[in-house]
Every structure is written in C-alpha cells, then in structure tokens.
Design a binder for these strands. Sequence first.
DNA 1: TCATCGTTGATTGTCGACAATGGGACGACG
DNA 2: CGTCGTCCCATTGTCGACAATCAACGATGA
Lengths: 209, 209
Amino acid sequence: MLEHVSLPEAVGRALRHRILNNELPAETRLVEANLAAEFGVSRGTIRDAMRSLQAEGLIAIVPRRYSVVTRMSQEDAEDVCFARCALEDASVEGGFGPHRKELAKALRLALDHMSIAARTDDLDALVASDTQFHELIIEVSGRRRLKDLWSMLNSQMGALMRSEIERQGIGLDDAVERHRGILDAVANGDLPRLRKELRDHYLTGFGDA
Amino acid sequence: MLEHVSLPEAVGRALRHRILNNELPAETRLVEANLAAEFGVSRGTIRDAMRSLQAEGLIAIVPRRYSVVTRMSQEDAEDVCFARCALEDASVEGGFGPHRKELAKALRLALDHMSIAARTDDLDALVASDTQFHELIIEVSGRRRLKDLWSMLNSQMGALMRSEIERQGIGLDDAVERHRGILDAVANGDLPRLRKELRDHYLTGFGDA
DNA sequence: TCATCGTTGATTGTCGACAATGGGACGACG
DNA sequence: CGTCGTCCCATTGTCGACAATCAACGATGA
C-alpha cells in the first residue's frame, strides 16, 4: 500500500460513490448502525465519514435525529455553479499565470480525455476529466484557499453533472463542447474572453458539463 | 438552555477562543488525551471538535501523528483576503438586492458598533461587528453556498485581524474607517464603486479590519 | 565509527457498550 | 371524537479500553 487510506476515508469514498451513482437517492436515511454493520467497522468510523460527506454537501446531519442524503433543487444547482464560477473567475482575474502555453496544452489534453469519455459513454471518466479541466483553471492563481473552497463543491458539482446528463438535458458530446471556448480563450491569451466564456459555461442554460 | 450546544461544539468554541487569543500560539501541539482530561470529556469528543477547527483552517491534523495550531504566513493572509474579496464581490455583482436602503442602514449600524468597540478597545467586539458588517455583504446575493464558503474563512479572518491589530500594524479606529467607503457606495447605490471599495478594503495595504 | 535493526514510549485509530434523546404508538381523559 | 400525557423504541451521543502506528533511542555487529 503506497497510500494510506484511513478507514473513515475509505467508507467516505464508498458512500460518496453510492450517492453520486444514485444507489442512495436523495432523502435516503443513513443509519449509523446499519452502515457500520455493512462495512464491518464501528459506528465512530461511520460518523467520521459522514462528517466529510456533510462538509461536501452530499448529506445533511440533523443532530440527535438522523442523517439524510441531500436533495438538490434547481436553485441549489445554480448556486453551486455560481460559486464555482466566482472562484474560477477570481483565479484567472490576474492573468494566465506564468505558463500560459502549458496551461493551454494541459487543458487540451483534459478536453481530449473528456471527448474519449463521451464517445465511450463513460460517465465517471467524463466527470473526472471535467474536474481535471476546471482544476487547471482554479490552480492558475496558485492560491491555496481558492482551490480549497472550490474543492468543497466538487462532489456536488459531480452530482449535478450526472443528474443533468442522465435526464438527457444535454448529451455527452455537448457537455464536452461547452469547454471549447474556454480552451480557445486561453490558447489565444484573451483574458476578457476567458472570463466571459467561464460565465457562459457556468451560468447559461444551466449546469456545468 | 435555549440552544443546544453539543459537547464537541462547546469544546470547539473553547479551543477556537484560545487559539484566536493566542493562548494556544501557532505550532502548539494539541494532544487529544490531555485536552480530554482537561475538559472532562472523552477523546472522541475532542477529536470531533478538532475536525471542525481543521475545517476552519485553525489547526492542521497530520494523520497518525499529531495536531498542531496553524501558523499563518503573509501569503496565507493575502490568500484569505483574496478569497473573501472574491466571494463578497460575487455576492454584489448582481446588484444590491431588493432592499438597498435597509442594507445601508444595517451596514451603518454595524459600523457604529465597530466604532464603539474601537473606542472601548474591545477587540472581541470589533471582530464581531466586522464579521457582521461583511456578513451583510455576503448575504446580498441570497446564495447559500456563497455564504457557506465565506463562513469557512471566518475564523482565519478573525485570527488575521487580531494579529494585525496587536502588531500595531493598524489602529482600531483606522480599522473602522476602512469600511466607510463600502458603506458610502451602498448608500449611494453606486455598484461599480462598491466593488472597487471592496477590492481596496481587502487587497490594499493588507489585512482586513 | 557508523549503519542497521529491534525496542520502547507517546499518541492516534478503532471498537463495543452504555446513556440520552426525540418521535411515534397507545391509551386516558375531557 | 379530539387532545394530552406516558411509555417504548429506534437512533444518535458519549465514553473508556484496546490496537496500531511512528519517532526516538539504544543495542548490535561490521
């Protein structure tokens, strides 16, 4: 084992995966004892994992009562997109950073990955490469806290993408194409356009992808 | 007791207070067993509280090793300010919300509180009213996630203010005056100016207040 | 002398058990 | 028939004990 994954982290991942794949739909109650038994760990471990999921906005914990998988309203979705957009916009407002060419190259690579994922109908891979794409943007500023805040929205963003796509709101290819403008703006070194593209990407129609 | 404060929450508050008041200076190691004994609670409770502090950025937890009070570098300070500025700017970019007059009034009230706190050398009250002031700004958009993210930076912002002021970097009155421009912009309904004032407030000289 | 390796002590990670809470079922009372 | 109070149960909150981990130290052998 190269990387130590603590027990709570492993449980967190498993639960996160289930929620994102709708194996645990919204409003599902999460009972510590049940999960503990299922995973073969103690309730404390489950509690720990649930805290993380709460921080990510995937579940809501009502003290002394219960925990429940969060339901995302339309407003929530816009909310998440708006916040992500604000963070990414702030990240680039000072320019492209010292390596614009490399950034463009990395973005293009991520976009290629997305494209492949779209053609193979691999939703997991699509979400992953989308995250990677935007991660490059949020890292432009080099500011740690900007990325920390951004990361907190990752899970919800992923959930949002999946539900949008599965509802056939948008096709996989369409999802990929919506990133093209961002890449172009970076490739051309056109900062105002980049910021406009980001806004379009996050705030129009609705939903990321 | 009107409001239920769970044990971990109470412990968290106590520790937060100590850290912000430098009773637990940066680099201090936090040993679960010691704190558990001191507070008369179990280690699990302490662990829980420490998770919160970690999320707020006040302590760092190195798995399987130790927990330590975070030291904020100059870069960290700028980082926090930058992120807060980005969030508050995003909050107002769509306008003042439906009740600009009331907002201005509330801001003025908060500013008065700050002023009083400054005159009575009440650092706690100053930080509290500063938080309140900016909270009004971040609530303009009515977007929950924007405020959630903003809130995560609250503790660090408080720590930052205190250390800046105690180092005599700026006087208490000066700290109050730096908010005037923001209030004026709101009072005059001058959105571009408001956004400029926010940037000045957070990004010039350095440090909030 | 120096590198290696087991030992040791301090600390965190995990667990199972018990206590406390709050909702809902059920029955008494008006 | 509706309301209130009591009891019970499911579930979370808290605890103390044991296991695992890791750095520091010292012993061992070349």
